[in-house]
Write a protein that binds this DNA or RNA. Structure first.
Lengths: 335, 335
DNA sequence: TTTAATTACGTAAACGTTTTCGAATAACCC
DNA sequence: GGGTTATTCGAAAACGTTTACGTAATTAAA
C-alpha cells in the first residue's frame, strides 16, 4: 500500500507518463482538464507532494528565502520577521533564519553558504560592527537581495529603511521643547547609515535651536551590558545631562537602572527618550517616550520587494522605500 | 573563467573523476591525502560548495531542521529560537521557521509540507487552540521530532518541558504568604499540559493553604487584546481579587492598564505575578514578579535532543527533559 | 479533399550529487 | 614468485523531478 509515493507511482497508477503527471501538477496548458483532475485527485488521495530537492535541482527554484539578521531576540527583528513570514506564506515560500550576533565573519559565512542555490533570494539587515560594503557590492550581483533597516547606503541595491534623520530631529526638538539643554546621546549602530542619520538628526536639531553640540555627552554602545550601565552612571556623574536620547533599545534598561541607582527622578531630573519596539514601554516606571519603527511593515515591504524581483516585475521601480517612524510621547519626557 | 563551478569542473581541472572529487570532499578513507589536499585547495580557490539540492536528492539528507512555533514575536519563543540556532550552527544545519499563529490548520499544513524530505527533523511547540494528538501520534512515526514547552503529554515522543506545576505551586504560595486570599488566575494555553499543570499548581497551593478555589476568579485568555483588558476590569469590579496570577505573558499589559484605569495600587491593593520572559519586567511600574522559564536553554536542549536522534545516538535516553523555571520576586508582589 | 494548425500526451535527457562495484596498482606474506 | 590484501581510483547508476522535442489524433482552414 505505502512505499514512497513519487511521481512515478502516480504515473503507474493512472497509466500515463510521468511527464504528463508533472505537467498536470504544474497546471500546464498542454494537459487536458480531465487528466489534470485525475492526477490532482490521486495526488491528494496519496498525500503526494513533490520532492523539493529533485524539483529544485531540475528547475533551479527553491521556494525558499533567507533572512539574515543580527539577533532574533530583539523586538524590532522579531516583528520584522513576522512581517516577512506573512508575505513568504502568501507566495508559498519557506523562510530560513540566520543570526549573525553582529559578527561580520559569521554574516559573510552564512551569506556565502546561500550562494550555491540553497535559496532564491535574501533579506538582510547587516551587522554594525564592520563596514564591508565591498563584499556586498559583489554579492548583489550574484543573488536577489533586499536590505532592510540596516543597509549600506552607497550600494546600488534594494533598500527598505525608515526616516531616521527626520524622526531623530523631531525627537530631539521634543526634548528641547520640554526644556532640556544638556541632552546626552546614547550612540548605537556603529557606522551604519541608520546610526549616522540618527546622530545627525540629533546634532542638527541642537544646532537649529542654538544648542552647541558637546561630544562629552555622547556615549557609545558596548556589547557588555554591565559596561553600558557603568558608562551611563559615569555620564551622569561627570556631565549632569538633563536628558538621555538613546538611538537603540538596548540602552533602555541600563538607563533606567542608572537613574534608580543615582536616585534621579524621571522626568523631573532627567528625561529619557529612546528608539524602541518594546511593547511594555508604556508600562515602564515612568512610561517611556519612544521612537517606534514600523518593524512589521518594514519586514513586509522588504519581502514584497524581494518577490517583485523574483517575479521579474517592477525592477524599474524605485529601489528605495522609506517608511515613517512615529514619536510616541509618554511620561519619561514629562511634557 | 567563471561559469558555474560544480563537481564536474573540479574533476576536469584536476584530471580526476567526479567520484574521486566527491569522495575527497566528503573525506572518504578511499582517497589519498595528497588527492584530498589537491581537491580541497582547488575547491577553496574556486569558492566551490556542493549544490544542496543535488546532494540532498541523492543522499536524503538536507542539513536543515524546521522550527514550528505559535509566534516569533514573543520573548519566550525568540529566546528559544536563539538557543536552537546555536546548536544548529554547531552541527552545520540550516533552520527553517514557521509561525502558526495558534492556528491548528496552519500548523498541520506547515508540518505536512515538511514530510517530503524538505528537512531532517522538526522542533515544535504546538498550538493551544485545539488538542489534536491523533495527528501527532502519526506524525512522530514519519519524521524525527522533538516537542518543546508546549507538548502533548500522552505521546510517546521526545519532550522538553519545564516544572510548570511545581513553580506554579510555589508562586501561588508566595502570593499567599504575602497575604493574598482572593487570588485570581488568568488562564492561558488552553488544554495543553503546560496550561493545565500551571492551573493545577495554583489550585493545589490554594488547597494546601486552606483557601477554597473559586472559579469566578478564573479568567480565560482571548486573542483580542481589548477583550482581555475589559475582562480584567470586569474581574476587578465583580470579584475584588487581591492578586492576579497570570499563566502567560500576554496578560501583563492589560493587567497593568486595568489597575491604572481602576486606580488600584500595585502591590498595595492588588499584587501581580506572571509567567514571563520580558526583559523589562524589572522596570515596570512597579517591577513585576515573574516566573521565568529558561527559554534559551529549552531551545538548546530541544535541538541537542533532535541531533541525538538524527545521529542515531542515545535513543535509549530518557525521552523527557524537565528544566526548572525560576520565581523572581519583585515589587509587584510586595513582600 | 488536402493541408495546416491545434490539442494532448510520451520519450528521453538533464540537473549535480552520492555510492556501489569493479579494476588497477602496489605492498605484503610465505 | 604465486597468491593475498591494501590502497586508490573510475565507470556508471541512481535520486525524483522538469522540460525540450517528437508524435499521433483531432480540428480548422483552404
Amino acid at each position: 500500500m505505502s512505499g514512497e509515493v513519487n511521481i512515478k507511482r502516480l504515473a503507474q497508477e493512472l497509466n500515463i507518463s510521468i511527464a504528463t503527471v508533472s505537467k498536470a501538477l504544474n497546471d500546464s496548458y498542454e494537459i487536458s482538464l480531465k487528466t489534470k483532475n485525475r492526477v490532482l485527485s490521486l495526488a491528494k488521495e496519496l498525500n503526494y507532494t513533490p520532492n523539493p530537492a529533485a524539483s529544485n535541482l531540475r528547475s533551479n527554484k527553491t521556494k525558499t528565502i533567507a533572512v539574515i539578521i543580527p539577533c532574533i531576540a530583539n523586538n524590532f527583528f522579531s516583528l520584522a520577521i513576522k512581517g516577512i513570514e506573512e508575505i513568504a506564506r502568501k507566495y508559498g515560500h519557506h523562510v530560513l533564519i540566520y543570526q549573525t550576533h553582529e559578527d561580520t565573519e559569521m554574516e559573510m559565512s552564512f551569506t556565502n553558504s546561500l550562494l550555491n542555490g540553497r535559496v532564491d533570494g535574501i533579506l538582510t539587515s547587516v551587522s554594525s560592527n564592520e563596514y564591508n560594503s565591498d563584499y556586498y557590492r559583489d554579492l548583489v550581483k550574484k543573488i536577489p537581495l533586499v536590505f532592510f533597516d540596516r543597509v549600506y547606503e552607497s550600494l546600488d541595491a534594494f533598500k527598505i529603511t525608515t526616516d531616521d534623520y527626520q524622526i531623530s530631529f523631531t525627537a530631539t526638538e521634543h526634548l528641547i521643547k520640554c526644556g532640556c539643554l544638556k541632552i546626552a546621546y546614547l550612540y548605537g549602530l556603529g557606522n551604519l547609515p541608520a546610526g549616522r542619520a540618527r546622530f545627525s538628526g540629533y546634532k542638527d536639531a541642537l544646532n537649529a535651536h542654538g544648542i552647541s553640540y558637546d561630544e562629552n555627552l555622547v556615549l557609545n554602545y558596548s556589547e557588555d551590558e554591565d559596561v553600558n550601565l557603568d558608562n551611563i552612571k559615569k555620564l551622569f556623574q561627570d556631565q549632569y545631562p538633563d536628558a538621555l536620547f538613546s538611538s537603540i533599545e538596548e540602552f533602555i534598561i541600563p538607563a533606567y537602572l542608572a537613574c534608580n541607582y543615582l536616585q534621579l527622578q524621571i522626568p523631573k531630573d532627567v528625561k529619557i527618550l529612546s528608539f524602541s519596539n518594546m511593547s511594555s514601554a508604556k508600562l515602564l516606571n515612568p512610561s517611556l517616550t519612544t521612537i517606534t519603527q514600523p518593524a512589521f511593515e518594514i519586514g513586509n515591504e522588504a519581502a514584497k520587494c524581494l518577490f517583485k524581483i523574483l517575479n521579474k516585475r517592477g525592477i524599474d521601480d524605485d529601489q528605495n522605500i522609506v517608511l515613517k517612524s512615529s514619536l510616541i510621547k509618554r511620561a519619561s519626557t514629562g511634557c
